[in-house]
Design a protein around this nucleic acid. Structure first.
Lengths: 117, 117
DNA sequence: CTGTATCCTCTTGGATACTG
DNA sequence: CAGTATCCAAGAGGATACAG
């Protein structure tokens, strides 16, 4: 995924990773701490969670700050306005899946069936 | 990218590859032959073009048929109705990039500048 | 708790040669 | 022209240990 995505495809660089979309989904409901994200994104490793967070932060999609509601080292991650503005176009893709995914699976099945000849 | 993308993120399995989006863009204008696609997608190899075409065909996004306008072995690839229905939600992402990409780059620059301390 | 640093594996995609 | 078959390199991501 180390590609120079150009023009209208540039968004792939933001959400193209293995976890980026799921991370954004976790944060749409509100701010989360590192540990909560690690629990919510089942199967993610420390390393990859940190990398994904850092990249989203660098891209301006999320923001990190010391959790004002806690003492100690707890950080709070939350979406920025830029990150929130991505929700609607992504939701449009989600609705497309909702409406059309059965067609995709039907196509795959008939392809696979044909492949057995 | 060998992931079981679930629910609203399933579309990533369709367009997540290095070339899938560019391939669909090539085909929105109309049917194309293999050689034209190979020329249009600058830098793609035979192998990867074939893989990308086969996967999109398996997913029901594109269709392949013998070019009716030519003799010989020329194949014609074109979008199916399912593939065309993906255009609008993807265009929404394209518009988001158009409207917000400068903010993304600004965030990256200020992050990188801060990283030099 | 919230990370960073290594090491390692597996997949993607590129180069190239060959086939109908 | 339109692929298929191999071989290979690069990089993303996982496991684990260590640190503030």
């Amino acid at each position: 995924m180390t590609v120079e995505w150009k023009g209208p495809f540039a968004f792939v660089g933001l959400i193209g990773g293995r976890w980026a979309l799921m991370l954004l989904a976790e944060l749409t409901a509100g701010g989360r701490r590192y540990q909560d994200l690690h629990d919510g994104l089942e199967g993610i490793s420390h390393k990859v969670l940190t990398e994904t967070l850092r990249r989203a932060e660098r891209d301006g999609l999320i923001r990190r700050q010391l959790d004002p509601a806690r003492t100690g080292t707890a950080n709070l991650y939350e979406l920025t306005g830029l990150g929130r503005s991505l929700e609607e176009p992504l939701a449009a893709l989600g609705r497309w899946v909702e409406a059309n995914w059965d067609q995709v699976e039907a196509a795959q099945r008939s392809w696979d069936a044909r492949a057995e000849s």
